[in-house]
Design a protein around this nucleic acid. Structure first.
Lengths: 205, 205
DNA sequence: ACTGACCCTATACAAAGGGGTAGGTTTCTG
DNA sequence: CAGAAACCTACCCCTTTGTATAGGGTCAGT
């Protein structure tokens, strides 16, 4: 079994390689960015799985994943990530990822997950799926806001004007202003910039 | 030699512990958040070094570091981080950290760094210091902006109003508005919220 | 001495943001 | 059924933001 690990954190990569190879039966090749991963896939063949760090030079969100999937059709590719925006898991699986591995996963579980994915299964930790099912209900901030307020906050977190948000949601501008004002109170923001920063900081969107 | 490792990424923690103990001569205790680190320090003694992840539940920036330093005076504490805002390294050392370990450091180097710090030295990779010396000149965004514009952008990135920024910098509000307008063009922002998000995204501040 | 940058200030106007209040609907629940 | 909660709209009023324009200052390099 041969896998390719791409992560710009040498510390994790080195220790991970040592750990996996110590587990036996798995050989690894490791690179530090997306470009390295693509050239490694060109230079060698026989990879059973590619592990791509979501935060890594060249990835640009899910675009990097798409490129690898398109570049070598048939190879199984999984994302590995410490901090990923909400919804990435679902989007990644929709694009054809073999799995999603959070860095909070115990090392021993990772080895199992690798074998699982190489066997052709899709690996996603249960808690990430349930969090998706709850539609972002886990975060204290998200809990306080209504659905509409969350939609409006998403617009704020993208730096949009009230008018733009109104158009996107098919609502009038006064309505947006109302939601904006209400959500400020709930999340403790003094203006839209602070609201956007709070939303980003919380990992929403 | 006995060290305490606090990181919420089990994947790194597990593999790191295995790697370090494999290197010989170092015993490790590991926890997954700041609270765990504090209780571990209470429960046991004889730690030669504490490694704290900068991004970890309970840390709240450098506050967590300060708490550990204050909590057990005399113990040597180092930060370890994958993504840290600019200036954290300097601030951490000023607070009394024993070192700063980026996760891009090779695993073998980490073992050396640990021994180095336990010996009483301060460990900071040269590239991080030089980047500090250049005063943030490495990022394409920072290069385009003048000093004043950077100061104003910092205010924007904290969600401040023009009036507040003016007061902080001892300038008039019209001056701030001028700088704000000019820096929008340079970084490609359409409004202050986008400017704040761009600045954060770029890792400035 | 001249040019160009960076920096500071100012005025004026248009657009957007933010707060308050008020009234309407649906929908769910006690 | 009554009440609460979420949702939508609208109006007024004030502040903040954003843009344009115009002026003057320092300092480094030509």
């Amino acid at each position: 079994m041969k896998i390719l690990i791409a992560d710009d954190h040498d510390l994790l990569r080195d220790t991970l390689v040592a750990f996996i190879e110590g587990a036996g039966g798995i050989s690894t090749v490791s690179v530090s960015d997306l470009a390295g991963a693509l050239t490694a896939l060109d230079a060698q063949s026989g990879f059973d799985l590619v592990l791509l760090d979501y935060n890594m030079p060249g990835m640009h969100g899910l675009e990097g994943l798409k490129r690898v999937v398109a570049h070598r059709s048939g190879v199984r590719v999984a994302l590995i990530s410490g901090e990923a925006p909400r919804g990435v898991v679902q989007k990644a699986m929709a694009v054809g990822a073999a799995g999603f591995v959070p860095k909070t996963l115990p090392a021993k579980s990772l080895v199992n997950a690798i074998r699982f994915m190489v066997a052709g299964e899709q690996f996603v930790p249960a808690d990430l799926m349930s969090e998706a099912a709850e539609a972002g209900a886990q975060h204290p901030i998200a809990q306080k806001l209504t659905n509409r307020e969350m939609q409006v906050l998403e617009g704020l977190a993208e730096g949009k004007a009230n008018k733009e948000i109104a158009r996107d949601l098919n609502l009038s501008e006064p309505t947006i202003k109302l939601h904006v004002k209400n959500l400020y109170r709930k999340i403790g923001a003094g203006n839209r910039t602070q609201a956007a920063l709070i939303a980003r900081e919380a990992g929403l969107f």
